[in-house]
Design a protein around this nucleic acid. Structure first.
Lengths: 227, 227, 227, 227
DNA sequence: TATGAATGAGCATTCATTCAT
DNA sequence: CATGAATGAATGCTCATTCAT
């Protein structure tokens, strides 16, 4: 586990840096950028403040480093959760599961990305936006693939598809918070709910033709490395 | 327009208070709670800092007052945009339009509600959650109504419906930011995109049975008073 | 009773001024000069702040007015309590009784005089010192009278008498606080205690059996480390 | 001498802390708690304000630290000035000398204890009261010892003794201010004056010739108008 | 006579950041 | 590699005081 490492002297820089980032993510995630103090972060990391500055330069840079690390971790978790060969709906399902699983296991990191980074200046928001764009692009491409699989003309209006992808990602982000806050809702259930909604739509829900959760041999295999 | 009132002395308390709230919403919305300084708010409002404290007590109370005013305004805008007699899909459409219109016209207020209030302490988040719950409840009830209209058994699993409503509202919130940030996307288009997605679902989109935007005589009438 | 007058409009200046002084004495006595706010005083007096300024000019002047009123009241109480014709011990006894009675009935006023006025600048302290000097002079003269009554030479060293009078008044002041703070100690008992202590001491002084300072080899040795 | 140390950088914490306390005692003693500003104290100590906060936490804590240091110093000075083996009168004499000497050398510290701490909240007053109680107890016990030495029955009423001790300490406190303010009065003279006054008084008390309260027909007549 | 509206100035406190060692 | 010592610059908040009515 990352936190709570025993306070010991003289460790290699790379390790110390990770300890600092761990402390920073936790502190930024819970207090917010401005309310988090370098004092608190240094103490939580078990080092002196000057060392934090020596390694990470400034509060600004430290926050940026947190965003980058957490964004990369989330993107990687989703990427690793999706098996490329499968049909589009299956890929979307796997991506959503990986997403909900990772955010549930990593609430402070998710808070940094979803809440804190967007609330404190364009600079930070842009950093997250890059990763988000990557995910939106992935979803967009899945939608196009689904269209091809359905033998339909690929001339769905582009902006329409972009909007839908945006809506889908937004819904996922929102559900992540909801799942975290609602006791008894698992990552899998959250993913299923969203899949139903997205794939079938409300209209179909009424008509009793919901998309169904696929049976899996080893449901967690795909996201096991996300922790 | 609210801001930019001529700086004139000696006005009744109620008026000054609104000016202060205007300045505060703008400042909180752009800078965030912590980064916003009472000095800046007072200056923007054209008054001295002590007057802000005399009327609004503390930064905390001022922020709360902002949240309450903006939450009430948004809820009222949506409420006023929906005509109760219509079928469920029509009502949802009108609600979404009103929502996107209000948030587009009121980006700072929306930022306060959607970004800032959620990032700075449970107290503030709870304040927004109340209004959000109201909207989620409205959507939940629309979904149930739609089920009845479709002559289906009303035994949709409750948590499923709650999840779907949550996802829909989350998608709307996310699209609001997207529409504000993407030039050329109007409130109407954002609403249509989401409506298509939500009502028909991706599966139906593929099958070429999209929900269609209803033709309206006076499209803006319902939300005209929201400014 | 002074406090708690019904809030009514349009009363003659003299009355309003007394209400303000009542409120000010109470507030200054309990909070201290600096911690007392003009807001609180005005509210307690049931008037608006500008009116306080109109009548009493400034916080400084208001405090001075409090000191003067309370000093005059105390001096007058003592003066009125003493019947001039009586023997010196009887006069002292009556003076002490009057003093303890007045301070017990008037704790806020006494706090203003004894604690607050001495702690906030020479200006205020001097104001009290004047009244105190009057009392010390009265006591000094009683001691001289007692000496005459005892048919002793009136050549008691002057500074000695001054010092004794000072000590007596100081003891009285100290006992006043003690009596106020110790439940069950009445003004009369406090006066008797001090009278016993003081008069017996003075009596011996008169009888020419003073305690004598011991000769010391190294007078400062015992306190040398105190600096 | 404590003050006026050369302003030099980078000294050990303990030293800096004493400098700060020196400055604080001086400032609090002269201006009072509220009127003393942390800015002034920091400047007088030759450090920046944040350093004062780093070491002493808050104005409140700083004031408390001053009170504690000065109370301990005064108690210690008195304790060190008294040789336990001697007769009671001799011990009292030595205690008084030590007391007057210490307060004369330490006027700001004495002001903090005697004036400021008592005027600014129960919390601070209690801090001083503890030390004062110690001194009163010491005096009380001396009086009892004197009674034993005089071979008298030890059945002096307890409250009477407590009152006398209180009066004696009060007189001493009062004389300390008088001696400081009256040029040409030394600590020794002040002590002798009080010793004369007090010991002779007590002596008569011991000899069972107390002054007696006169019987009065209308005991309250003289002070009736004082309310 | 009386007050609602308004402010200049100051204060306790905190924080990101840097030296000197 | 690591830190104790130190600070410039804000920031939230309060208060005595004054106008315009």
């Amino acid at each position: 586990m990352r936190m709570g490492a025993v306070k010991s002297k003289r460790m290699p820089r790379a390790v110390r840096e990770q300890q600092m980032l761990d402390a920073a993510v936790r502190t930024f995630g819970r207090r917010g950028y401005m309310a988090a103090s370098m004092d608190e972060i240094a103490e939580l990391a078990g080092v002196s403040k000057p060392l934090v500055y020596l390694y990470l330069n400034s509060k600004d840079d430290l926050f940026t480093a947190c965003i980058r690390r957490e964004a990369a971790a989330l993107a990687e978790a989703v990427r690793a959760g999706v098996r490329p060969g499968l049909p589009a709906d299956r890929q979307l399902w796997e991506g959503l599961r990986a997403f909900f699983t990772h955010t549930a296991r990593n609430p402070d990191g998710w808070s940094v990305l979803h809440l804190q980074a967007r609330t404190h200046g364009e600079r930070f928001a842009a950093e997250v936006a890059a990763m988000r764009a990557e995910i939106v692009a992935f979803v967009t491409q899945l939608i196009a693939a689904a269209a091809r699989e359905a033998h339909r003309d690929p001339d769905l209006p582009e902006r329409e598809v972009a909007g839908v992808a945006e809506a889908l990602v937004g819904a996922a982000e929102s559900l992540a918070a909801w799942a975290n806050a609602t006791p008894g809702v698992t990552a899998k259930q959250a993913a299923a709910t969203l899949m139903n909604f997205a794939w079938a739509g409300l209209g179909n829900l009424m008509a009793d033709r919901p998309w169904t959760v696929p049976e899996e041999g080893d449901p967690d295999a795909a996201v096991a490395q996300a922790g």
